[in-house]
Structures are given as structure tokens and as C-alpha cells.
């Protein structure tokens, strides 16, 4: 790994200024995505700006119909939060199956959302619930946030500070996990929300996406059988050593049915 400057600011303002001041500088939260990439020399930031000392970014608040989770909350914190488990049990369950115990102790919601790995779990919850990504300079709707492979609507240096999840009537997430990394080969998040049924699929494409055909079928009948015969075309799906595009298309149907059967 190439050496770099290391900064540990105590305010969001200073953190944003430090990243703005060095071309290629990166924020460092839990490091569970960034450090592996740096170890492979796939990223060589000249400076890392640690977020560890920023105050107020690791809180979870449930306020009426919204669960607001600070960007620095670890996956473990979300998985073990009684408030999250009560308001959106599917979200707590999703967090409890990210990576493994050690990764969950370090990895953060904000890091996952900013990195936007195509096989990450959280993007499915954000898109499936219609969440809002809050940053140092504004808000992004999940529907227009995930743009492509590791690509989001964040501007250069924009810092994710929280995610606001609307509480659904019912929701569930089902994942076919990579055997070693536990990343989603395919993960499907199904939610009955105030705005209708939402189905978000991660792991299968360049970024998380919704299935209009599945949403229409489940709007008619929220049963696993309603998805019989509905397929997502394999054309644009990922193919790698884990799974062919055709296998991923098959898994989407299976995981969607499992999620519908597990709604609560």
C-alpha cells in the first residue's frame, strides 16, 4: 500500500475542507471497503481523512414514520438496535448478515452507501424502502442516487452524514450470499410502503435496481405464487466465477419469493 497523509478532523466542516484541499483525498469511515482496495493498489489516495472523531454521526433515532441512522453507525450497531428491530425488522436483519462479525464491528452505513458496491446489501434496503441519503450539503432520493458501478449522485467531496428510512408496513430481504465474503450474489428487498410495493435487487447488475414487473405482480397479490413466470432478463446481469447471468436471473426469482414469504 502506498503511503498517504492521515488527518483526523473533529468537525464535518474541517473534514470536507481537507478532502476538498487535496486532489484524490478520500474519507475513511470503517475502512472495510476502502482499505482492501488500497491494499491491492486499485486506489492510491494521497490523503485519508478519518471520520472517527466527527461528533453526532453515530446515532439512531426513530421519529414517527422515519428511522434516521447516522452515517458512522456500524453494521453491528444497526443489527443490534432494538429501535431498528422494532420499526423495520428487515433492516436490522439485513445488517446482521453483512460480511461477518468482524466486518460488522468496523463497517459503517455511510461507507457502504458512499462506496455503492454492486453486491452490497444496504443499497437494496435504501432503494427498497425509498430512503433519503442526507449529506453535508443536501439530500438525495435513493431512486436517483445509485447511478452505476460504484457510481452515485454524490458530488466530489460530498459527505454522507445519515440515511433516513421511511417505516414500511411490511418488508423482508433475502440473499444468496458469496460463500467466503458474504456479499450478495443476488439479494432482493421487498417492501409494502405507503407509496406502493417496491422490489429492489442487488448483486445482480452494475448497481441496485427495481423490478417493475415484480412490483406490479405483487401489487395484485402479495404472495410468492404471484411471481410465478415473472423473470428479469439476464442480458444486463453480472456474470463471474460465482454465477452466470442466467443463474443470477433465476436466483432473483427465488430470492424474491423467499422475501415475500418472510414479509413482516
Amino acid at each position: 500500500m502506498k503511503d498517504f497523509e492521515f488527518h483526523r478532523p473533529a468537525s464535518i466542516k474541517d473534514a470536507v475542507a481537507l478532502v476538498a484541499g487535496t486532489s484524490g483525498a478520500k474519507y475513511l469511515a470503517g475502512g472495510q471497503s476502502l482499505l482492501p482496495v488500497m491494499k491491492l493498489d486499485l486506489a492510491e489516495p494521497p490523503a485519508l481523512v478519518s471520520l472517527a472523531r466527527l461528533p453526532g454521526l453515530a446515532d439512531i433515532r426513530v421519529d414517527g414514520g422515519t428511522v434516521a441512522i447516522g452515517a458512522l453507525c456500524t453494521h453491528d450497531q444497526v443489527a443490534r438496535s432494538a429501535d431498528v428491530a422494532k420499526a423495520i425488522p428487515a433492516l436490522a436483519a439485513l445488517a446482521s448478515h453483512i460480511g461477518d462479525a468482524q466486518v460488522r464491528n468496523r463497517g459503517t452505513l455511510g461507507g457502504s452507501v458512499a462506496h455503492a458496491d454492486p453486491a452490497a446489501d444496504y443499497p437494496a434496503a435504501l432503494l427498497g424502502l425509498g430512503a433519503t441519503i442526507v449529506t453535508d450539503r443536501g439530500k438525495h432520493a435513493a431512486d436517483s442516487y445509485f447511478k452505476g458501478l460504484f457510481e452515485t449522485s454524490l458530488a466530489d467531496g460530498e459527505l454522507v452524514t445519515a440515511v433516513h428510512f421511511p417505516v414500511p408496513r411490511r418488508a423482508a430481504y433475502a440473499k444468496f450470499a458469496h460463500r467466503a465474503s458474504k456479499y450478495a450474489v443476488v439479494g432482493v428487498f421487498v417492501a409494502e410502503t405507503a407509496g406502493g410495493v417496491r422490489v429492489a435487487i442487488t448483486g445482480a447488475g452494475a448497481t441496485v435496481f427495481r423490478s417493475a414487473a415484480m412490483e406490479a405482480a405483487l401489487t395484485s397479490s402479495m404472495t410468492p405464487g404471484a411471481l410465478d413466470g415473472i423473470t428479469v432478463p439476464a442480458d444486463d446481469l453480472n456474470a463471474d466465477a460465482e454465477a452466470s447471468a442466467e443463474y443470477r436471473a433465476h436466483l432473483i426469482g427465488v430470492m424474491a419469493k423467499r422475501a415475500v414469504a418472510a414479509l413482516r
Binding site: F6, L28, G31, Q32, L35, D76, Q102, V103, R106
Partner: peptide
């Protein structure tokens, strides 16, 4: 807390 020390500075 248990962490992977190969993935922490």
C-alpha cells in the same frame, strides 16, 4: 470488539 487487523490502519 473483534476486528480484522489486516483491514485496519
Amino acid at each position: 470488539r473483534s476486528v480484522k487487523s489486516c483491514t485496519m490502519l
